[in-house]
Design a protein around this nucleic acid. Structure first.
Length: 540
RNA sequence: GCGCCCGUAGCUCAACGGAUAGAGCAUCAGCCUUCGAAGCUGAGUGCUAGGCGUUCGAAUCGCCUCGGGCGCGCCA
């Protein structure tokens, strides 16, 4: 049991003793920023003063004598009614053994017994990823990793839009490029894809199949679509894999549409469907939307939304307790209708969580960069990752709350100094590894018996707060909080390093204690970086 | 017009309703004969857009005003 749980229990019992019912989950323990305020503090006396019918300080006075524990050195009342806890040294150092024994599982939450589906990126397989996708990929993968680490059973999913107009254009463009290889004139309409990447794909078709698909018939038509989607999707998967993002499941829209699924779904929804002007509308405004949405156009075709209904039902039918969609912020108008269809199926609207990710702007040499110099088009995901490296992009793209705009500083990301937070954190890890290697002949003192200086305790407390940081970041689906945690951890490691000599051959017991602390810090840093998909190097 | 997000230091952003509102960038001044200076220490900047409420206590919650971004299609 960590100190924070211990104190919660203690406070809960103290309230019970003086006859006040307080839900233990509402008791908040925070780590004091200023050592004058002890190691931990709670505002419980202030929060419950009205319930108790006395002033915050008076309530604190009553609780104070009930808060004795062998782990607690002393408790003080301060300010408007804070209770400040000063812990015994052993209660702080005991975290070292916990961390080292748990290793890469330190911070992992107990199984929640809940299945979560995180769907993200789902880029159309018609071209390359752009920076909006990059941020969604970084955020989505980190949310998935965070929830996994917090104890959820997580599935990462990519929805492949392999139907519709843009896919027809892809097939047609690929066919045109293929014909071009046989000396026929290139016939591309304005809506077709003019990118030259299709030429390479066309070549591979020619090499494999010769002139088999030159005739304009259904077989050729279907072939080019199929082949094009597969080839484009393979490129997307490669780019994402290079970015450290792997999906567990790819679901194809064409499969969702099979076997009359859409018709069955519309039948299921018929009480909320009505006709207007020859089109069919779904009455989402009866649930959580501000207006009704067309699902069948007057020409008989489905709108984009219609297969999406089936797709979300498909996810629910697979037994997920929670669906998370990570979408671009311009999709916020979409949330209401999605929650509505969940409600129509009898689910809580909270069974779907839509995380919106704002756009990215790239700055270089102080000016915004809109286009890639090389291609003249929007900067591609692949180029950015190649230029500044996976680690920097992954870190910077989740560093801020996804709901706020992100300004990506090209120059900063390339910098190898403390001003670059990625290097700052990775360097802290490498420093730990280096120290442990230098002192590899010295046994670690898991009890940390010689520790107690301010920089040591400050680091110990931050390490001990890691499981709590995971839990709350997971609850908020906020990987950017892990970035914040990492930064502080790096800071505490560097401060510790600077404040005392870790390896002292003249005092082996002290060195043993300090190296054990360094080991615990290294483990914690690696575990935190892993959630963001950033590597934890031994050497740099 | 309606809806969503937002307004905090010169810039980019933090801050479960809590103590003196914090980080990074940029600026300035120190610290390497010793474990990695890719580091550390110190300096300064704020009517938290504005107003009125709610309460022990508000950047945070509610209402209003102002200012920005986005969405509001028988597009996807």
């Amino acid at each position: 049991m960590g100190n924070e749980e211990l104190l919660k229990g203690l406070i809960g019992k103290a309230f019970a003793t003086i006859g006040i019912e307080v839900d233990q989950n509402t008791i908040v323990i925070e780590r004091s920023k200023d050592p004058v305020h002890g190691d931990y503090a709670t505002n419980a006396a202030m929060k419950n003063s009205r319930l108790a019918g006395m002033s915050p300080r008076a309530l604190a006075e009553k609780l104070l004598p009930l808060l004795a524990d062998e782990q607690v050195e002393k408790v003080e009342i301060a300010g408007p009614g804070f209770l400040n806890f000063f812990m015994k040294q052993e209660s702080l150092t005991s975290i070292i053994e916990t961390v080292i024994n748990a290793g890469e599982n330190y911070g992992r939450g107990a199984s929640k017994g809940k299945k979560v589906n995180v769907e993200f990126v789902s880029a159309n397989p018609t071209g390359d990823l752009h920076l909006g996708h990059t941020r969604i990929a970084a955020v989505g993968d980190s949310i998935a990793a965070l929830l996994d680490f917090a104890g959820y059973d997580v599935t990462r999913e990519f929805y492949v839009n392999d139907c519709g107009n843009q896919i027809e254009h892809l097939g047609h463009s690929l066919s045109a490029r293929y014909k071009e290889l046989f000396g026929l004139p290139l016939e591309l309409s304005d809506d077709d894809y003019h990118g030259e990447d299709l030429i390479a794909i066309a070549k591979s078709i020619k090499d494999q199949f010769g002139d088999k698909y030159l005739a304009d018939n259904k077989e050729s038509h279907d072939f080019f679509i199929r082949y094009g989607v597969d080839a484009e999707l393979a490129k997307l998967r490669k780019d994402l894999a290079d970015f450290g993002v792997k999906f567990d499941v790819f679901t194809y829209e064409s499969d969702i549409r099979k076997d009359g699924n859409i018709e069955k779904t519309l039948e299921f929804l018929k009480k909320d469907i009505y006709e207007k002007d020859g089109a069919k509308y779904l009455a989402t405004s009866r649930y959580a939307d501000d207006k009704d949405r067309p699902i069948v156009k007057s020409d008989g075709l489905y709108t984009y939304f219609t297969p999406d209904i089936c797709y979300h039902y498909n996810k629910l039918d697979r037994g997920f307790d929670l669906l998370i969609d990570v979408l671009g912020a311009d999709h916020h108008g979409y949330i209401g209708r999605l929650k509505s269809i969940l409600m129509m199926k009898g689910y809580s609207p909270d069974a779907l969580d839509v995380e919106l990710v704002q756009v990215v702007r790239v700055y270089r040499d102080g000016a915004e960069v809109k286009m890639s110099k090389r291609t003249g088009k929007a900067i591609a995901h692949r180029d950015l990752v190649a230029d500044v490296g996976k680690d920097a992009v992954r870190y910077f793209f989740v560093e801020r709350s996804p709901s706020s705009h992100l300004d990506f500083n090209y120059n900063l990301a390339l910098e190898r100094s403390s001003s670059n937070p990625v290097y700052y954190a990775q360097y802290a890890h490498a420093r730990c590894a280096s120290l442990l290697s230098l002192g590899s002949d010295i046994p670690l003192d898991l009890k940390g018996e010689r520790l107690g200086e301010e920089a040591e305790n400050s680091l110990l407390k931050h390490i001990a707060s890691f499981p709590g940081a995971i839990e709350s970041a997971a609850k908020e689906r906020a990987p950017y909080k892990i970035a914040g945690y990492i930064h502080t951890l790096a800071e505490r490691i560097h401060e510790f390093y600077a404040s005392s000599r870790i390896i002292d051959r003249n005092d082996i017991p002290l060195t043993s204690s300090r190296l054990a602390l360094i080991k615990a810090a290294e483990i914690t840093m690696a575990n935190a970086l892993r959630i963001l998909g950033v590597s934890a190097p031994e050497k740099m």
